[in-house]
Design a protein around this nucleic acid. Structure first.
Length: 414
RNA sequence: GUGGGCGUAGCUCAGGCGGUUAGAGCACCAGAUUGUGGAUCUGGGGGUCGGGGGUUCAACUCCCCUCGCCCACCCCA
């Protein structure tokens, strides 16, 4: 299109819609703060290496989905596709491994170079918490519980399902992966083209295939549970036990997987069926190998990310904005008084709107349109009496009030 | 990246098997109402019919390309 338009997959958020986003972020910030997670800010871009190093063998594919470019100094830069790698990098470069556990809340824009669809933009927004330095299953429980409390506070928990699985520790996962690849290789010719490729690249993902024939084959595949060693089984049992004790409902889903090697133990997603095929609203897991993969000291970690757009679509309307008081002068003498009056009202904590032009009727229409709760009308008559006429725009009743008593009187409209 | 659907006013949409001034509702502006909003009535502004090219005497309409949106696939670190 010739006309000016935003870059594909990006979106303007005007105040009305942005309030829905703020509701999600503010709720998440407040709830996570009660569990001891402090908000931090991260750069919106990093050296490409920061993200690429966390992607391992699948990087060929995933790199194509990153927003990457070369800056003027010739450095390869990537707009962050998620927050976890940035937190891990900050932990390493900030020397924070001396001061664990690290408990942080992050929110803001993320970028992926993908074809947009419902709930999936190129610039999207996430909330995110990370708990680093805690190897105990209690950490997984806390992180999931905070997510559940946020969903509850947003009123969407009952429209989501918590799906959970364990990937076990490294030993278990390797054993399972080998068994799975053996099994699937025997059925290679029957797999879909996509899955034949996955078999080499990211075999666990085949468990999640939407292809019907694939699913038939997957039904006969080895089960993850059979390959878990005692350590892994105990860990998972402890996580589930913690959730049980908190009354957090979950569904075991053995097809819920993560492709990369540093993931281990718990993987979970809060999903919904209300958003088409982009069903995950808040998802995460344990990543004990991440920090060392990036070159830092071995540091366990667990966390999640939630999609703000998706959560905002599910959540109800946010609390309405406070309704303004409209200051309505009639004539120039009154206008000279109205300006400082509106200023004083704002200083006193009122939301005050002073129109910019127009006669009384015009200004009253405007006051109605912006949803003003009351109008403070001032003309020559009121000025002469050092007063203003205050009209309740809901009831239509009005009363003349001395300027000295005005703020007090307007208190009823807060 | 692949496949499908859709682009007409700020918004939601109608329309014409190619024909001269392109419509409605809502929204906006003005007036009825020169010190009173919401309701009603009257009038008004606003469109290169997404963009480019082609066919034609004539294209918003047909054809091709392109951009964008939506849906599914892929991907989901």
């Amino acid at each position: 299109m010739a006309a000016l338009q935003p870059v594909r997959g990006t979106h303007d958020l005007f105040p009305e819609e942005y309030r829905r986003h703020r509701q999600v972020v503010e709720t998440a910030r407040a709830v996570s703060a009660r569990a001891g997670y402090g908000e931090m800010a991260l750069p919106i871009f990093e050296f490409t290496d920061v993200f690429q190093r966390t992607l391992g063998e699948t990087s060929d594919v995933v790199t194509k989905e990153m927003y990457t470019f070369e800056d003027r100094g010739g450095d390869r830069i990537t707009l962050r596709p998620e927050a976890t790698a940035g937190v891990a990098r900050a932990l390493i470069s900030g020397g924070l491994s001396q001061d664990l556990p690290l408990k942080v809340f992050v929110s803001g824009p993320m970028f992926r170079y993908e074809r947009p669809q419902k709930g999936r933009l190129r610039q999207f927004h996430q909330i995110d918490i990370e708990l680093m330095g805690v190897a105990e299953p209690l950490g997984d429980v806390e992180v999931i519980a905070v997510g559940a409390q946020i969903l509850e506070a947003l009123g969407v928990l009952d429209r989501t399902t918590l799906e959970i699985n364990t990937l076990g520790d490294g030993e278990s996962r390797t054993a399972f992966r080998d068994a799975l690849v053996d099994y699937l290789s025997a059925h290679r010719s029957a797999l879909s083209e996509d899955s034949r490729e996955r078999l080499d690249r990211n075999p666990l993902r085949i468990l999640d295939s939407k292809n019907e024939e694939d699913r038939r084959i997957v039904e006969g595949a080895p089960a993850f549970g059979d390959y878990l060693n005692a350590t892994s089984r105990d860990f998972f049992a402890a996580v589930l036990g913690g959730l049980d004790s908190l009354g957090i409902a979950y569904t075991l889903n053995q097809r819920l997987v993560r492709g990369l090697d540093y993931y281990c133990h718990t993987a979970f997603e809060f999903t919904t069926t209300d958003l088409g095929s982009q069903g995950a609203v808040l998802a995460g897991g344990r990543y004990d190998g991440l920090v060392s993969t990036m070159g830092g000291p071995a540091t366990p970690g667990v966390g999640w990310a939630g999609g703000i757009e998706r959560l905002a679509m599910l959540a109800g309307d946010p609390d309405p904005a406070p309704r303004p008081i409209a200051v309505v002068p009639i004539g120039e003498a009154a206008a000279a008084v109205a300006l400082p009056l509106a200023h004083r009202l704002r200083a006193a904590g009122f939301v005050a709107e002073l129109g910019y032009r127009g006669n009384l009727q015009r200004r009253m229409k405007r006051a109605n349109k912006i949803g003003a709760r009351a109008a403070v009308i001032m003309g020559d008559d009121e000025l002469a009496a050092d007063s203003a006429t205050v009209r309740d725009l809901d009831s239509g009743e009005q009363e003349q009030v001395a300027l000295g008593a005005l703020q007090d009187y307007l208190g009823r409209f807060r």
